[in-house]
Design a protein around this nucleic acid. Structure first.
Length: 933
DNA sequence: AAATTCACG
DNA sequence: GACGTACGTGAATTTC
């Protein structure tokens, strides 16, 4: 058929598909010879799904997969830096490139590439030809460079999000019509492709300018009219650069092609060719699926493994994720059927939907369940009827819901049944919600924590990331249901039919992730980490967070007032000293005052060209002038006021009168917890004024706050891991460790030790934990770099174990791409072999991670054991601050608690790990946190 | 949304 | 020989 009116051309951005497949999937290699094959596999799966989805009236009549070819294009002749910051193609991907061409041909889809041109140019040319012939075009790509082609029958389709982008979509993204997209891109530049653009102008500003002037050319000709001086100057001075940028982003739609649109007609694949290729690649699941589809017998793939090592898992034969397939549970009969099935299986994936993200205040809106891949449901509970308006309490409940109490009473036995595993993604959230409705969910598995145990350092562990990486599926974004910004709605206002798709999909995905991860845990050797350090922490933290800590609003409020006065006073003095009024809180304005107006020494820094005005710089300047010192004071007070006395009051829960932080278990790569909303792990303590904030953290009437903290835990771990006899002895004998280090290094007897020498040794001790460098130590101690390097050299000489530990750790990291704690926690270090400045970061992180991580493991173990140990005491564990646990206890039981909790903490490493150095815990108590610490 | 600054261990 | 560095976090604020 000749291409013309009524025809529909699909153009697939093949190169983008390959890169996505490569990065989304775990490394996979052909069983028989180890050829890396992950990207080809992902690519074939995408093609298969693409072909399967091509039915109905909108199906394409013509299709081509288009690839980039050659690294040098006409754009490099225009500008040698074009795409110059691109990383080299990964080793594992290179051999797969030709195979993806063969895959395309095997599917009998036209495969096009032309030396010296980017895929985008070919797509542009074809799209224009098709448009002129009167046909429709869909560009399957998410590359924003293609947006300039949209309009007049040409649309884009983001294959991952399954989102069509038409003229309006382009307007949304670029703020201009498609024919002006290149103008905006020319101004905004592109850091990915290294298109320079106009410095300081982004998409938003560019769109504003183009809309005002009509076109880029007009804008550049009339640049003098621009009011903002900096912007005007940029546009005039960088005119050449901007015009060059336009040439770089402008796609070539007039290429001479050695083929025509007619050559791209859709053809059915030939079974023999396609299955032959898939068999050669040894894709078992895909071969089977396609054979069934084509009604042919599946070819046999021999099961050969090179040296019998590492036979890869057979890819699971699961139905595709299909939001249409999920069930809306409308009545008790249906719910009972799901409950029965969960009991039969012995597991069920559970996900809760709520009115907000704060588990302490939100309401439960609905519950989704999944029991097998593709088999999931949603139980709506308190969705509002769609007609009911939210202005005047239009609270009519929608039809098709079971009453909240009735449903929870039916679910409670299942959720609390010790014989049924409840599977969730970030179960602490759901556990806290259920707890507020009187349900103690147990036992649990958590896919987020499984991923964290196996993959810390490799990628994030949110559901979207995991689904994309391990299931090649992008979940429905919550934004699609709730909207965003001002007119965002709560989940109970979402129409139930939409909620079913979203919520049940989440449960389905969670179940699939669980089935994927569960068998991998022991192969990755992290079962003990997951079962001993991650999973059991969930109920412990849930309880701590629900308990919260009492914060006295009046104390904070009084302090805030005092701070405000102090700030006003300082501000006045600062303006006086500067000779003009300016925003003290603006580093930019401050920098200009200090360095331009007052002419103090100090240079520019950073890409933005702004002066650096950090505390260390201001401290240096303070010797020259009074102003920097006042600014430092102002900043301190300002910080205390905004972050602590003011923000903290907002976090006091009106019902409990307490502040409830949330800990992320899988946030920090090293195994540490992180505290947020609010962060209670960085409440001031180092400065006298700041420490007073802690007076607002108080015990309930008749109770006392008790703080227990590990003394020097990271240095003790260093002594253990690096096997440093001198350090171990010092810890065993309870000596002052920094003084001992100083004595050893500088040959000063202990009884002649000065505080200054000790201070330097202390800095070195900490420096070692951070992966010391001469530069870093020099900066910290404010001494010449050579001198700092001398200290380090001597330190390595006196404690040779340190050097060995560091070298061994780096060698291990290079070999395994990860490091480990004493308890087997793995922290991946993918950048350890990178070159450039990133290598330094990766090296220091690799040295620090086992130490910081082991300390984190130890306090986790203490926390897991703590509830059982103190069960009989009138005490509650409230907070964890990395090496400190804070308790609230009835006054009469303080000594009991200290005795018990101290024992748990000091013995937390045993019996799994024996330490040659004792763990020592110091205790404090008082009516508030300042006294207790 | 990015950059800057600063609070903690 | 130069580069650019202390490790791990979260939050408020200004600027683009």
């Amino acid at each position: 058929m000749a291409f013309g009116k009524g025809c529909h051309l699909h153009l697939i951005d093949g190169s983008a598909y390959i890169f996505r497949a490569f990065h989304a999937l775990p490394p996979l290699s052909r069983k028989s010879d180890g050829l890396p094959i992950g990207a080809v596999s992902g690519f074939c799966n995408m093609l298969q799904r693409y072909v399967e989805g091509n039915t109905g009236p909108d199906a394409p009549t013509h299709v081509a997969v288009v690839f980039d070819k050659g690294s040098h294009t006409f754009r490099n002749d225009l500008y040698d830096q074009y795409k110059a910051n691109r990383d080299e193609m990964p080793e594992d991907l290179r051999p797969q490139i030709p195979l993806t061409r063969r895959a395309t041909e095997a599917f009998n889809i036209a495969c096009k590439e032309i030396e010296g041109f980017e895929a985008d140019d070919i797509m542009a040319t074809l799209a224009c030809q098709a448009r002129e012939a009167g046909g429709r075009v869909t560009l399957l790509s998410s590359d924003k460079d293609l947006m300039q082609l949209v309009g007049d029958g040409v649309e884009m389709l983001d294959p991952m999000k399954n989102k069509r982008i038409d003229r309006e979509g382009v307007m949304e993204k670029f703020g201009v019509a498609p024919d002006r997209v290149v103008d905006v891109q020319a101004l905004a530049g592109d850091s990915v492709d290294n298109v320079p653009g106009a410095p300081g102008i982004g998409i938003k500003t560019a769109a504003l300018l183009i809309n005002e002037f009509g076109s880029l050319e007009e804008l550049l000709d009339r640049a003098e009219e621009i009011k903002q001086p900096k912007r005007r100057q940029t546009l005039i001075e960088k005119r050449d650069q901007i015009e060059l940028s336009k040439k770089l982003v402008q796609l070539d739609h007039g290429m001479e092609l050695p083929f025509t649109l007619d050559d791209l007609e859709v053809r059915d694949p030939d079974p023999e060719t396609l299955l032959g290729f898939l068999t050669e690649m040894e894709f078992r699941t895909l071969t089977k699926r396609i054979s069934e589809k084509m009604g042919v017998e599946a070819p046999v793939i021999p099961d050969t493994t090179p040296d019998g090592a590492n036979p890869s898992e057979a890819a699971p034969d699961w139905p595709a994720i299909d939001p249409e397939a999920y069930e809306w549970v409308r009545d008790m009969d249906a719910l009972e059927r799901w409950i029965t099935q969960a009991h039969e299986r012995g597991w069920v994936a559970v996900d809760t939907e709520t009115t907000g993200l704060n588990e302490m205040t939100c309401d439960l809106v609905g519950i989704s369940l999944a029991i097998e891949p593709g088999k999931a449901c949603y139980v709506p509970l308190i969705h509002k009827a769609s007609g009911s308006d939210d202005l005047f309490g239009g609270d009519d409940l929608a039809e098709g819901q079971i009453g909240l109490e009735t449903a929870l009473d039916a679910l409670r036995p299942l959720l609390e049944d010790p014989a049924v595993m409840k599977i969730g993604q970030n179960m602490k959230y759901d556990a806290k919600v259920f707890a507020r409705y009187g349900i103690a969910i147990a036992p649990i598995d958590d896919t987020m924590l499984m991923s964290y145990a196996m993959n810390a350092g490799q990628h994030g562990h949110g559901m979207d990331t995991l689904s994309e990486r391990y299931l090649s599926h992008s979940p429905i974004p919550i934004k699609e249901l709730l909207g965003s910004g001002k007119k965002m709605i709560t989940f109970d206002r979402v129409p139930i039919a939409d909620a079913v798709k979203y919520a049940a999909e989440d449960a389905d995905i969670t179940l699939r992730l669980w089935k994927t991860f569960k068998p991998q845990l022991h192969k990755a050797r992290v079962t003990r980490v997951y079962e001993g350090l991650e999973r059991p922490l969930v109920p412990v933290l849930a309880q701590m967070e629900r308990t919260g800590i009492k914060v006295d609003r009046d104390t904070l409020s009084r302090m805030s007032g005092a701070f405000a006065q102090k700030m006003a006073q300082l501000e006045e003095e600062i303006h006086e000293l500067a000779g003009e009024s300016f925003n003290v809180g603006s580093p930019k304005q401050l920098g200009e005052i200090l360095f331009d107006k007052m002419g103090l020494e100090g240079g520019k820094k950073g890409k933005t060209g702004a002066y650096a005005t950090g505390a260390d710089i201001l401290e240096d300047l303070a010797t020259e002038h009074d102003l920097p010192a006042r600014v430092l004071d102002w900043r301190q007070v300002s910080k205390l006021k905004s972050t602590y006395t003011d923000a903290l009051q907002e976090h006091i829960n009106p019902e409990t009168g307490r502040v409830h932080t949330s800990y992320s278990i899988a946030g920090a790569n090293t195994g540490r917890l992180a505290s947020n909303d609010p962060n209670l792990q960085n409440i001031p303590v180092r400065s006298e004024e700041g420490r007073r904030i802690r007076e607002a953290f108080v015990a309930e009437e008749g109770k006392v706050l008790v703080s227990l903290d590990y003394s020097q835990i990271e240095l003790r771990i260093l002594a253990q891991m690096a096997d440093l006899p001198a350090l171990k002895d010092a810890f065993r004998q309870g000596h002052d460790i920094h003084a001992m280090t100083a004595s050893e290094m500088f040959n000063v007897p202990l009884d002649e030790m000065t505080s200054d020498i000790r201070r330097q040794a202390k800095a070195i001790n900490f420096g070692v934990i951070y992966g010391i460098s001469g530069f870093g130590l020099a900066r910290n101690l404010r001494i010449p770099r050579a001198e700092a390097q001398g200290f380090i050299d001597r330190y390595f000489e006196r404690f040779p174990g340190i050097k060995t530990y560091m070298d061994d750790t780096i060698a291990f990291a290079k070999e395994h791409k990860r490091v480990e704690t004493l308890f087997g926690r793995q922290i991946h270090t993918p950048e350890i072999s990178a070159k450039g400045p990133r290598a330094g970061f990766a090296r220091r992180a690799a040295i620090n991670a086992p130490i910081q991580g082991t300390a984190a493991d130890i306090i986790r173990r203490a926390m897991v054991r703590m509830p059982g140990a103190i069960a009989d005491l009138p005490a509650k564990m409230l907070l964890q601050v990395h090496d400190e646990l804070l308790f609230e206890v009835e006054s009469g039981a303080v000594d009991d608690l200290i005795g018990t909790a101290k024992e748990v903490m000091e013995g937390a490493a045993a019996p799994v790990v024996h330490l040659d150095v004792p763990l020592v815990v110091d205790a404090g108590q008082g009516a508030n946190w300042a006294e207790a610490h």
